[in-house]
Simulated scan of single mutants.
Amino acid sequence: MGALDYLSNFCTVTSTRSKRKAMQTVEIKVKMDCDGCERRVKHAVTSMKGVKTVEVNRKQSRVTVSGYVEPNKVLKRVKSTGKKRAEFWPYIDQHLVRYPYASGVYDWRAPKGYVRNVVQAFPASINAPEENMVTLFSDDNVNACSIM
């Protein structure tokens, strides 16, 4: 043990600062009609502290922000531009959902290939009864059924 290690045991510095925010991606749905709306939203979010990248997709009405930011602050900043109906991105890819046409999942306002992210779209458990019946007579697993 060196002298510096020995002395460092006596001198402990505690920081009053909080840890740095985690890097995250925030997706927001906001209706943008023209280039001015798009520019105003992009400028408002870009000027925030901790923002690394901002992607605006006017066709999907989607703003994607990456950086060391809090999601609620990003949403609040977007709403401050006059877009009061802004909300977190409520959609997920359609191929990730087991039941895309369940009630409340399919949304005609969703962009192509997306459905609403709700609990009903996913099965209650991994070993659901109907899933067990389907895999019982599977062509992929030849030894699944002893009758065949």
Rank of each mutant, 00 (worst) to 15 (best):
M1A: 13
A3P: 07
L4K: 08
S8Q: 14
C11E: 10
T12Q: 14
T12Y: 05
T14P: 02
R17G: 12
R17Y: 10
K19A: 12
K19C: 06
K19F: 03
K21Y: 00
A22G: 07
A22Q: 10
M23L: 15
M23T: 10
Q24M: 12
T25E: 12
E27L: 08
I28V: 12
I28W: 01
K29W: 07
M32V: 05
D35H: 13
G36I: 07
C37Y: 07
C37K: 09
E38Q: 15
E38T: 15
R39S: 14
A44R: 10
V45I: 08
V45M: 03
T46W: 06
T46N: 14
S47N: 14
S47V: 06
M48Y: 05
G50L: 00
V51K: 01
T53G: 08
E55I: 04
V56W: 03
R58M: 10
R58N: 10
K59I: 04
R62W: 08
T64H: 03
V65L: 06
V65M: 04
G67V: 01
G67N: 05
G67M: 03
Y68V: 01
Y68R: 11
V69C: 01
K73G: 07
K73W: 02
V74I: 10
L75T: 04
L75C: 04
R77N: 12
V78D: 00
V78H: 02
S80D: 12
T81K: 04
T81W: 05
T81H: 07
G82M: 03
R85N: 09
R85C: 00
A86D: 01
A86P: 00
F88E: 03
F88G: 03
F88P: 01
F88N: 04
W89Y: 05
W89S: 05
W89V: 07
I92C: 06
I92W: 01
I92N: 05
D93C: 00
L96Y: 04
L96M: 08
V97P: 02
R98S: 09
R98K: 13
R98C: 01
Y99V: 06
Y99L: 09
P100M: 02
G104D: 06
V105W: 05
V105C: 04
D107N: 08
W108L: 13
A110Y: 04
P111W: 03
Y114I: 01
V115T: 01
N117I: 01
A121M: 07
F122R: 11
A124N: 10
N127G: 11
N127Y: 15
P129R: 06
E130K: 12
E130V: 00
N132H: 09
M133P: 00
V134P: 05
L136Y: 04
F137Q: 11
D139W: 07
D139L: 09
D139Y: 09
V142R: 12
V142Q: 10
N143M: 14
N143Y: 13
A144E: 09
S146Y: 08
I147H: 15
I147V: 12
